[in-house]
Simulated assay, not measured.
Amino acid sequence: MERGMNRFSVPKVLGDMISLLPAYPGSVLFVSALNVILTPRLPEDVREMILGKQLRLTIMDARLDFNFVWTKGGFVAGWGNVEPDMIISASAYDFYQLSRREEDPDTLFFSRRLVMAGDTELGLVLKNTIDAMDLNVFELVKSVPVRKFLELIPGYKKP
């Protein structure tokens, strides 16, 4: 990763290569992880609010989009040609820091490193819901359900 302005970023040449990949397979993997990590923890009122909402997570420096929608059965991968109700964008490193709770989403938002577009009320509900969860993505990898999910991935090696 390149280092600039005291932050790491995906090198442009790598971002250019990643942007050539089809979005759908990555979105399928992304929603699989969301369903293991978030679905069991989502309150019923939040589930109702996000029902049928088209969401997109964009990793700006990697030029990578994850499109997904909440259905009654969980998160489902979406197609890139649908206009999302909400887009959340940041760099790979900023998402990494958020996932480890090393950076506050409000700080990133007000420094314009985390961008929300579209239905901001929806974005705030999701942000507040995730903030309320005692959730460290990297700690979850140690849990039995997540380990079993990872073991299904070809080539995965146990730590």
Rank of each mutant, 00 (worst) to 15 (best):
L34S: 09
L122Y: 06
G52R: 02
G4E: 14
L126C: 05
D131K: 09
G78L: 05
E103D: 13
M49K: 15
L21K: 08
G78K: 04
W70H: 08
S19E: 10
V115A: 11
D134H: 13
F30Q: 03
A23R: 11
L124Y: 12
G80A: 14
P154F: 07
V82M: 10
Y24L: 13
V10P: 03
M133H: 01
E48Q: 14
P84T: 00
R100E: 10
G80P: 10
L108M: 04
R7E: 11
V146P: 08
R100Y: 07
E121N: 14
R41Q: 09
I153E: 01
I87D: 06
P84Y: 02
T129M: 09
V125W: 02
N35W: 02
R3S: 13
L150F: 09
R100G: 09
V125Q: 11
M133I: 02
P105I: 04
V82Y: 10
G123Q: 07
P105A: 05
Y93P: 00
L55K: 01
T120L: 15
N136A: 04
A62N: 00
M86E: 05
V28R: 12
A117D: 13
P145R: 09
V31L: 00
L114N: 08
R41G: 02
S32Y: 03
F68E: 02
S89W: 05
F66W: 04
V46S: 05
T120C: 09
W79H: 13
E151F: 07
N6W: 12
K72I: 03
E139D: 14
P84G: 00
E2P: 00
